[in-house]
Structures are given as C-alpha cells and as structure tokens.
Design a protein around this nucleic acid. Structure first.
Length: 269
DNA sequence: TCCCAGGCTCTCT
DNA sequence: AGAGAGCATGGG
C-alpha cells in the first residue's frame, strides 16, 4: 500500500458510527475490495480511493481534502443523521434487533449509470458472479486509474456491439446493458434529471429500459438517485417481509423504507 | 443431472 | 392481471 506511506489520510467526522465493511459489502455496491488493515479500495465517478474507519468517522487515502469532503462524503451519505433514523427504527422490536446485530449501515449514493448497469447485471444472478461480470466490464471498457479501472461511460458501451460484450460472459443480460447504454447516451433518458422527479414517474421511466423491472428500478432509485423511501423487493426481501411483517412495515420506517429494506434483506441472508 | 442465483420479457389465458 | 416458460452462465 504505497499510497499510505506518502499521503496522509484525510479524516471526515460524522455523527454516529458507520459499519464500513457492512456498508460496502451488503449487496448495494459491487466493486469495493478489501485491503489490509480493514481498508477498502474502490472507485466512484472515475476517482479511486482507499477508505477506512477512524474515530467517529471515515478516513480517506489517496484523494484531496476537497474530494474527501465533497465527492466522497456525498457518496457515503455522511450528512444524513443515521443515528436519529436508527433510533426511530428501534421502536420496532425486530428492526431493533437487526440494527444491534449489524450496526449502522449507510445507503450509498452511487453513480446512477453504474447502478443501473450493475443492477441489470444482478437479475437472476448471484453476488460473486455479479462482481465478476462488473469487474470484466470495467477492465475491458473502462479506463485505467491507479490500481483499478473506471466504470465505462454509457457512451462507451453504446458504441459497442453485442459481440463486443460477449467477453463479459453475462448471458442474456448483454442486450439489456446495450439498450440501457443507448437510451442514456442518446439523451432519451437523463438519469440525473430523475432526481428531481417523483418516485412513480422516475420508476416508470426506468422500467422503459429493456431488462429493467420494478426491482432493478427501485435499486437504482434507492442506491443512486436519492429516493430514500424506495423499497426494492427481491426474493429475500419478499420472504423476510412475509415472515416478519405480514401486515406491512412498521410506521417508524416511513420516509426511510429503503434503509429498512437493507436490514430486512440482511435478515434473510 | 438437477437446482439455484438481489428478475425480466413474452405469451397465453 | 396473473401464471408460466425461457432466458445465459456458472457453482454446488
């Protein structure tokens, strides 16, 4: 880890404490790699960084102070008061238990195109293979950074053919990736602008992409577009909700159902 | 050999 | 509008 000996880490304080390993490896993001000493290396919007926990916050290595307090603080959703939200969740017995078991998990604000592409790949797939396919995608079509590669832009993917994408070995999802890339690159869909739309309209636009149904759309809405109340339902969440909350989610989750969803997802793993 | 994996589309009723 | 097959690939 050459970076460490040459550049000091930049600490960013937050209220409460984040469970970093859980946040980065709970199935919402697929590219973070565990390094030595509990550090993680990852890429967001073409910027590579190494991150760890320190005191009551995170410490970033290999980036400027401006990036740590800007790009990365936003990515890790550090300005939101999770302590307060989890205290409210704890009114519910079962959620309280899941929280004390797992600690404080943050919902990441990922790049929307990367999230869209990643969750298209996630359909009917398992997490190790999802990671592998995304790794191949970045290596084949992204740009070399330091040790990692950037996530290829929609414009780059849109310029490729299905045959080009065959190196991904991603099965029937190749045509979905291509459709999403073309719609985003052409401007037919402007992912950023969906942040200013209501949840139902945004979901309808996303599901207009071939290979994007409600579950994938809700993942994009929650994990990249800031819809904190979006509630992706996959087989695990469906099963866990039927078992734990057959009458519906408790009221204390309203407005933050997406965060609750992550804890419920964990309970079925 | 069969089953499953953070689903989705298409078709048929 | 609801159910069911088919979809590529790889691991157990």
């Amino acid at each position: 880890m050459i970076i460490l000996s040459h550049s000091p880490g930049i600490p960013v304080e937050i209220t409460g404490s984040i469970n970093l390993p859980l946040t980065l490896d709970c199935g919402q993001a697929f590219r973070w790699k565990k390094c030595a000493d509990g550090l993680y290396r990852g890429v967001h919007c073409g910027r590579e960084v190494t991150v760890g926990t320190a005191g009551s916050g995170l410490v970033f290595y290999g980036c400027s102070e401006e990036e740590a307090h800007g790009l990365w603080s936003e990515y890790f959703d550090l300005s939101r008061d999770y302590e307060l939200l989890l205290a409210r969740f704890s009114e519910d017995e079962k959620l309280s238990q899941m929280i004390s078991q797992n600690g404080c998990l943050h919902i990441l604000r990922q790049n929307p195109w990367e999230a869209l592409c990643s969750f298209i790949i996630s359909a009917c797939n398992n997490i190790p293979r999802i990671k592998l396919i995304i790794e191949r995608l970045c290596h084949a079509f992204g740009e070399k950074l330091n040790e990692e590669y950037s996530f290829p832009a929609a414009e780059k993917i849109a310029s490729l053919s299905l045959e080009d994408l065959s190196v991904l070995r991603c099965g029937f999802r190749d045509k979905y990736i291509l459709d999403a890339a073309k719609k985003c690159a052409s401007g037919e869909i402007d992912l950023e602008s969906l942040k200013n739309t209501d949840l139902d309209s945004a979901r309808r636009i996303l599901t207009g992409i071939n290979g994007v149904g409600n579950k994938v759309a809700d993942c994009v809405l929650l994990f990249s577009l800031g819809f904190f109340d979006a509630f992706p339902v996959d087989v695990h969440v469906r099963r866990a909700v039927e078992k734990l909350y057959p009458q519906g989610l408790p009221d204390c989750t309203s407005g933050a159902r997406g965060l609750a969803q992550q804890y419920i997802f964990l309970s079925d793993k």
